[in-house]
Design a binder for these strands. Structure first.
Lengths: 225, 225
DNA sequence: GACTCTTGTTACCGCAAGTAACATCTGGCA
DNA sequence: TGCCAGATGTTACTTGCGGTAACAAGAGTC
């Protein structure tokens, strides 16, 4: 079946090898799509058996393609992480005013998690990274759990664009991770309780980042004042 | 063994029942302490068998006391959560200047996670809350995973002390969860990479909350400018 | 036709969560 | 004294999951 291989690149190296590789990659994509359907349906606790069944095959094939469950989840994660990062980057580049940029980026993140909460939950809970601890070698740093990656990316953008003085790099990283964490926690809570519109959430968060916490007045009857 | 029950309250209702209850509670505390030792040693993936062995008993007793693994972990969590919340509250009440209060609170949180990273990791990863989804009834909201609880507490404090105008309650909650998320993410990253001293981390975060992001100058060679 | 590579299978191992059924020790009480 | 009730404890089991070994079959290459 599906023996139409006249489309695509078949000109470099071993033709057979190329054809084989594209076929393997396509298969891999199909498996990932099946996995995604199941994860969307069953949450992060989806079983390898269920995923294999959805793909119409059995477990060992999944293991041959992805090594272990972590590998499959990592492969799933990088796709969405990359997509999300693209969105955020364009939001960060579009507007001219700094406050507009921040608002657009927050908005882009919230739109994404609102559109596909299941995917988002899956990405945020990387299913208990096992500490290799023993056995000497470092299992080479699997894909940094989304949040950390987002933090680093934002830190880069901040330090590229803002003049933070002497310890600028350090400060940019703290801010990057801090802002990402703020957005994530607020978004998580908002998604769960829906206490207000997305626009208002963005405004409140931006106000917080714009120093409102420092300038707002005390209440008269506050304790200790 | 240990049949000295002359200490404590033995005056209300059925004396026997009281004595029994205190004994049960003490047993429960002992089990929790054993569980804590193991979780500290093995991380959040510690097995019920291991915990039971540490306590010198076997699994079914754990299940009789705590229902299921989630119940045990919840019981473990509330103890530390309460302790941490006490720390944070005193930090929030001590200093007079608002900025000092914020710094003291951040500091208290960071000191806590620095002192016992294992406990902290355990508290933050509530081991994949299972969505009951089917079967009608809601499994009645188990103890809100630390982060949410911290967010709500902070929101309360904020709305008690600051004059946030019309939509104050809503804004306070957004800020509460946002600040907690910021601190958590930054602390997580800091604990892992140790890129600077705790004092500097606190300063950077407080600067961020004090609106430095809004007032800092652009770099000349920034893209799009 | 033998060689190899990939896809696919069934059947298994080890381990963890959770449960059932049974044994024992305690004190209350008719 | 003998029976009941309730808590503590056990062994032995079921179920389900991650992961693997061993084997079978199609397809292209020499």
């Amino acid at each position: 079946m599906d023996s139409e291989e006249h489309s695509g690149t078949a000109h470099s190296g071993t033709e057979q090898g190329d054809r084989q590789q594209t076929a393997t990659e396509r298969r891999r994509r199909e498996l990932l799509e099946a996995a995604e359907r199941i994860v969307l349906r069953d949450g992060p606790g989806a079983s390898m058996n269920a995923i294999a069944a959805e793909a119409g095959i059995t477990k060992p094939i999944l293991y041959r393609h992805f090594g272990d469950k972590g590998g499959l989840y990592r492969a799933l994660a990088v796709r969405h992480t990359d997509a999300l990062l693209d969105n955020l980057r364009t939001a960060l580049d579009a507007p001219v005013l700094r406050r507009d940029r921040v608002e657009a980026t927050l908005e882009a993140y919230l739109v994404a998690i609102e559109a596909r909460p299941q995917v988002y939950r899956f990405l945020m809970h990387p299913a208990d990274e096992d500490i290799p601890s023993e056995s000497g070698f470092d299992v080479g740093r699997h894909s940094a759990p989304l949040l950390r990656r987002l933090g680093e990316e934002l830190a880069t953008v901040i330090s590229e664009r803002l003049d933070l003085g002497a310890d600028g790099a350090e400060r940019a990283r703290v801010w990057g991770h801090g802002i990402v964490g703020m957005t994530h926690a607020a978004g998580d809570w908002w998604l769960r309780e829906r206490p207000c519109s997305r626009e208002q959430l963005v405004r409140h968060l931006t106000d917080l980042l714009w120093g409102q916490l420092a300038t707002v007045r005390d209440l008269a009857n506050g304790p200790g004042f």
